Simulated scan of single mutants.
Amino acid sequence: MRDSTLRVGRPVGSARILRRRITATVTSVATIRNQFELEIIRLASIPTIFAKVLDQSRNPRHSSGVSSTPDFPAQLRDAELRVTRPRVAVLEALHARPHAPTDSIFDAVRAVLPGVSRQAVYDVLHALTSVGIVRRIQPSGSVALYELRVGDNHHHVVCRSCRTVSDVDCAVGEAPCLTPPDYDGFEFVEVEVVFWGMCPDCVASQSSRSHP
């Protein structure tokens, strides 16, 4: 009787093991199929992703993150100025150095165009300011400074200690920002306002000297 019971039980146990193996195999096949389908979807999306990256490289203004260098040749053409290496070099120098004096601009241009003359840089700055691509400012007691931020009639703040210059948005409303009460018939288009004070670094330095 014992042998007969054992012989009857073996096929039942084998069937259970077989069912488990079949179930595991089916699960593995389903997993592989899902992974395969995901891979197909990923591969199918590559052209779309590549197209987006290509579009962003061609149109930097549409991409997020740090702003890229402006299209200076296009700006020159829009202003009906011929695109030359000195003009582009001056614009690149101002992009990297806002509120720069002529000497600083000249040194930056000479670093990339060793043969350029100081007079050529002067001529470029004059041409760029004449068409409104570059703005020239000259706070009291300072040499002329140049910047690329134009068209919004913003103001400036100057540190009396280190002479650092920073931009300040319109004090009131929009351009020309301020209008005098008695203007004697003048029509105002722009107002230059310069705030004077101490920059944070100079304030901290002065405070440390006062309280050693």
Rank of each mutant, 00 (worst) to 15 (best):
L18I: 04
P98N: 03
P11G: 07
E80V: 15
F186T: 14
D103T: 15
G141M: 11
V90K: 00
D123C: 11
P60K: 09
I22H: 09
F186L: 12
P11T: 12
R136A: 10
Q75R: 07
G141Q: 10
A175V: 12
A96M: 15
V143A: 05
P73W: 06
E192Q: 10
V168I: 13
D78W: 00
S117T: 12
F106P: 01
V124G: 01
S210M: 09
G151F: 05
R16T: 14
R118W: 01
L38Y: 11
D201K: 11
D55V: 08
Y122K: 14
E174M: 06
P200E: 02
P70H: 02
R2S: 15
S57C: 13
P70W: 09
S64A: 10
T179I: 08
P11Y: 00
S140M: 14
V26W: 08
F188V: 09
L18T: 15
P60H: 09
F188M: 13
H62V: 01
L125N: 03
G115H: 00
P139V: 13
A89S: 07
A111F: 06
P139I: 07
A96Q: 13
S28C: 13
A74C: 10
R118H: 11
H156F: 08
G185K: 08
V124A: 04
P11E: 12
P101Q: 07
D184I: 12
F36L: 08
A111N: 13
P176G: 08
A171T: 14
V8H: 11
V121H: 03
S210F: 06
P73L: 02
L43S: 06
A93L: 05
D71L: 03
E39S: 10
L91T: 01
S130W: 02
R87N: 14
S68W: 15
Q35G: 15
V134K: 00
V12S: 14
V8G: 06
V193S: 14
I46V: 14
N59Y: 08
V134L: 09
V66K: 13
P98C: 12
I41D: 04
R87D: 01
R118A: 03
T27V: 13
A89Y: 02
L178A: 09
Q56Y: 14
A93E: 06
L54P: 05
H155I: 05
R85Y: 09
E190L: 10
L113V: 09
I46N: 05
T164K: 15
S28I: 11
P47K: 09
E192N: 13
G9K: 15
V150P: 03
V83G: 03
V194M: 08
S64H: 05
L76T: 01
A79V: 09
H62C: 00
V131P: 04
D78M: 05
P73F: 06
L81T: 04
F186K: 12
S161D: 06
S14L: 02
R135C: 04
P47D: 04
A111L: 10
Q138Y: 08
S45R: 08
A120K: 02
S208E: 10
C159S: 10
P86C: 07
N153F: 00
A120V: 08
S4K: 05
M1Q: 02
S63K: 12
S142A: 00
T25R: 03
S57I: 15
G132T: 06
A175M: 12
V8L: 15
A93T: 01
G173L: 07
G115E: 06
Q138S: 13
T164R: 12
